[in-house]
Design a protein around this nucleic acid. Structure first.
Lengths: 183, 183, 183, 183
DNA sequence: TATGAATGAGGATTCATTCAT
DNA sequence: CATGAATGAATCCTCATTCAT
C-alpha cells in the first residue's frame, strides 16, 4: 500500500509536477482512498519527504558502493563510478528528479533527509580527498551540481543513451579535476 | 506599475518559491490592487511567463554581446565570455532563478519564450560551431546545463565570489571542449 | 470492556471537551479497537447518551436516598440532603459534567434519559410539595439550576472544599425557599 | 456584512448548537460566500470569539450602568439592578447563550475576552465590597453562576415573564447575601 | 483606470462507520 | 468476538478571477 501510494505520487510528479501534486490525485491514482493515504503518511509534505528520502537513499547506495573501494582505485576510476551511479540514478525519471530537487530546495527539510544529504556530500568529498583533490568539499558540490545539471537536461531532452552522456559528463569532470583524458 | 508588479513577483518567488506565489500576495507586495494586476497581466501564468521571458532575454543579451565578436576571438576567449555572462546573470538571485527554471520546465510555455530559448541555444551553438566544436547543439545544451547547475548551487550556498566560481566553471567547460587550460 | 470504554470517553471529555470526543480517540484511550467500541455501542451518540444516562442515574440515586425519608424530616434537612448529594455528584469532575450537560441540551435525547430527567425533577418537586413549597415544579427546576450553576463554576475554579461551597449554596437555596438560616 | 455573518452564526448556534456551527453553514445562512466570511474573520474560532466578546460586552454595559451609581444606592437596589441586567441580557436567546458559554469554557480564549471576563467579575465584586459583603470575589462568582444557571434554564423552558423570574432569582440572591426580603 | 470586495471551486485533513480477517 | 485497515463524506481554508464602483 505504501508502495502503491509512493509510486502514484511519483507518477503524478512526473506528469504534472508539483502543481498537480495533491493528496486527492495521489490517492485516486494509487487506487486508494484519501483516508488510507493519511493512514500511512501524516500529510502531503511527509509523502513528498519520503519520496525525497528514498531517492536520496538510492543515490547514496550507488555512490557508497563506488566509494567503498576508492582507496584501491585511482581517481579517474573512482570518478567514473560516481558518474555512472549518478546517471543510472537520474536519467530514467528526469521530471520526477527535477520536481523532487525543487521541493527539496524549497521545503523545510526534516533532519533525517538533511543528514542524508550531508552524508552524500561527505562520501564524495572523502573519496576526492583521498586522491589529493584540493578543497574536496567544494569540488564534491561542484561536481554533483554539474553532473545533475547535465543529466537532468539530457533526460528532459529524451536522451537514453547512457554511453554518450557518460562520455560527455566525464570530459567536464576530468577537466574540472585536471585529469588528462588519456589518464 | 508593470515594473512594480514584476519586481514584487520576483521577490515573492525569492522568499517563498512557487508555493508562495499567488496573485494576491504579489499585488499586495507591489502595493497595487489585484484588479490592477489583472489589468496588465491576463493571469497568474502570464505574469510568471513574463518573468521568465525577461530573465531569458537578459541572458540572451549577455550571450549575444559575446557571440557578436566570436569570429574575431579564439574559442577559450568566447567561452570565457559566455561563462562570465551566465554567472553575472544567475549568481545574484539564485532562488529566483531556480524557481523560474522549474516553472519554465513545468508550465506549458508560450511560443515567444520557446523561440527565445531556442535562439539562446543557437547563439551558443553557432559560436561553438564557428570554432569547430563537434555536435555543437549538444555541446551548447551540455555547457548551459553544466554551468547553470554549478552557478545555481553556488548561489544557493551563498557564494558571491565571482572569480573563484568562474575559474571552477571554466575548468569543467574547457575539459568538456578538450581545450587545454594553458590555452 | 464497556466500563473501560465509558471511562475513556469520560476522560476525553474532561481533557478536551466535546470537540475532542471522537470514536477513534475513545477507543485508543480505552485500549480497545474501534470495532469493539461499535460492538458495544451502536454509535458515537449512543456512547454519549450512555454517559449521560449513567450520570443522571447516579444523581438520581443520591437524591432518591434523601427523598425517601423526606416525610420524616423537616424542609431544611431535606434540602441540605439534596444540596450535599448534588455537590458530591458534580464537584469532582466539573469539566465532564459541563460537557455532558451541554450535550444533553443539544442532542436529540432518547426517551429513557428524558424519563430519567423528568423523574429527577419530580423527586425533588414531590419532596418540596410535601413541605408546602408553592409551585414545587418551578422551585425544583430553579433550585437544580441554581445549584448546578454554582457547583459547576466552583469546580471549574478548582474548589474542592465541600463545606464552604455547601454553606454558600445553602444560603441561596434557603433564601429562595424563604427558610430562615437559623431554622 | 460583518453583522450579517455574526447574526447568521448566532442563529446557527441557536438552532443546532456548536455541532452545527461550521463555516459553510454560517456563510450560506448569511447569504454570502465562504470567501467573504474569511475576508472578515480569520477563521471559525475568531468568529466564535467575536460572538462571545460581543455578548460579554453587552452584559458588561448593563452591569456597569448599575455599578456606576452603586455608592448612592443601598445593596438590595444595586443587586436588583444586576439581576435585571443579567435577565434582560440572557433570557431572550438561551440556546445561544448556552453554546457561547460552553465554547468560552472549552476554547483557548484570547486575551481581550479574558480581560473582559475579569473586568465583569471585578465590577460586580467592587459593588458588593462597597456595601460590606464579605469575600466579594467569591460572592460575585457565586451570584453570577447562580443567576446564569437559573436564567438559562428558565429560557430553555420557554419562560418569557421577566417579573416572575426576577422575583425568584432575587430570593436566592438575597438569601445568599443575608438580606431580609423586607429590606 | 484603479480598486478591492465577493465569489466559489479546489485542495488538505478528519473522523464516523464498515467489514474482511 | 476482536481487530484495525479502508472508506469517503464533511469540513476548514486558500486563492485565481471577476466586476461593480
Amino acid at each position: 500500500m505504501v508502495e502503491a501510494i509512493l509510486e502514484a505520487a511519483a507518477r503524478i510528479l512526473e506528469d504534472g509536477g508539483l502543481a498537480a501534486f495533491n493528496t486527492n490525485a495521489v490517492a485516486e491514482r494509487a487506487g486508494v482512498s484519501v483516508g488510507s493515504l493519511y493512514q500511512y503518511f501524516p500529510g502531503k509534505t511527509a509523502l513528498l519527504a519520503e519520496l525525497i528520502r528514498r531517492r536520496r537513499s538510492e543515490l547514496m547506495d550507488g555512490l557508497q558502493r563506488e566509494a567503498a573501494s576508492a582507496e584501491q582505485r585511482d581517481l579517474p576510476s573512482v570518478v567514473n563510478g560516481f558518474i555512472r551511479a549518478a546517471i543510472a540514478h537520474q536519467l530514467d525519471r528526469p521530471r520526477l528528479a527535477t520536481s523532487l530537487e525543487y521541493a527539496e530546495m524549497m521545503l523545510p527539510i526534516d533532519a533525517e533527509t538533511e543528514a542524508l544529504k550531508r552524508s552524500i556530500a561527505e562520501t564524495v568529498a572523502s573519496a576526492l580527498a583521498l586522491h589529493g583533490v584540493p578543497d574536496p568539499a567544494t569540488a564534491a558540490r561542484d561536481l554533483s551540481a554539474l553532473t545533475r545539471g547535465m543529466v537532468d537536461t539530457a533526460g528532459l531532452f529524451g536522451e537514453t543513451d547512457t554511453t554518450s552522456l557518460e562520455r560527455r559528463v566525464r570530459r567536464a569532470v576530468y577537466g574540472y579535476l585536471g585529469i588528462g583524458l588519456n589518464a
